[in-house]
Simulated assay, not measured.
Amino acid sequence: MASDTEFIDLLERRIKLSIHTTAPARVISYNESKRTADVELLFMSVDKDNNAEKYKVIQGVPVQGMRYKISESFKAAISSLIPTEGSIDGSNASVKIDNAIEFTPFLKKDDVVVVSFAERALDNLNGTQTFDPEFHRTHDIDDCIVLGVLF
């Protein structure tokens, strides 16, 4: 009976190690115009003989951006204003923003980031259109997204 238990325990471990959810990673390079990064997972993989090895570098990983809307005006000190006539005092200004502000991600080589792995393959993702993933991959390292920087 002990060998049956050992087999089940090993099978369970192999299954769990093949399902990727969230992990820390290191930025190898970042393409700001495409908002994609090449990353290396900081977790190591374990083969069937329990030998630890690095995962491959994951290329072209989409990087999550953020869009915020500021609903109220706020006080701000504004510097470096250049007047066209007269003078400007930006030390006691009030700022009101009518539209949403989109923050573009900025990553540097060797930043430590958090990556998450999609439930299904992202190959056919195209904007907001629903799609058939086509492939049978689930929680695969090739379907990851950079969620943000770990400081």
Rank of each mutant, 00 (worst) to 15 (best):
G90Y: 13
S80E: 14
E119S: 11
L81M: 11
D98G: 14
F103L: 03
L81Q: 09
T104G: 00
E119L: 07
I82E: 15
P83S: 06
A76H: 02
V95N: 01
D89V: 01
A100M: 07
K109C: 02
V114I: 03
S91E: 13
K96N: 11
F117S: 05
E85I: 04
K109A: 00
D89K: 10
M66Y: 10
T84F: 14
A93C: 04
S94W: 08
A118S: 13
L125I: 15
L107R: 04
P105D: 06
K96R: 11
A118V: 00
T104A: 04
P62V: 00
D98P: 05
V113W: 09
D89S: 02
S87V: 02
V112D: 05
F103D: 00
K69L: 06
L125N: 01
E85C: 02
A100G: 11
F74I: 01
A93G: 12
A77I: 03
M66E: 12
S87E: 10
S87A: 04
Y68M: 12
A118T: 02
A121M: 04
K69C: 06
I97Q: 07
A118W: 00
F106I: 02
T104N: 05
M66D: 12
K75P: 15
A100E: 15
N124D: 07
I88K: 06
R120W: 14
G90F: 11
K96E: 02
K96V: 08
E102D: 14
K108N: 11
F106P: 03
M66S: 14
P105Y: 12
S87I: 03
R67N: 06
T84W: 10
K108H: 04
D123Q: 13
V63F: 05
D123K: 15
L125V: 15
A100Q: 08
S71A: 05
N92K: 15
D110K: 11
L122D: 00
K109I: 04
F117P: 00
T104Q: 06
S116R: 01
P105R: 08
I88V: 14
D89E: 04
I70F: 14
V114M: 10
G90S: 06
M66N: 14
D98K: 12
E85R: 14
D98Q: 13
F117M: 00
D123S: 09
K109M: 02
I97S: 04
G86V: 05
A76C: 06
L107H: 04
P83H: 05
M66W: 13
N92M: 14
G90M: 11
S71D: 14
I82N: 07
S94E: 11
V113Q: 11
G65L: 13
E85F: 12
G90H: 10
E119W: 05
N124G: 00
S79G: 15
A93L: 12
S73L: 03
A76Q: 09
S73V: 02
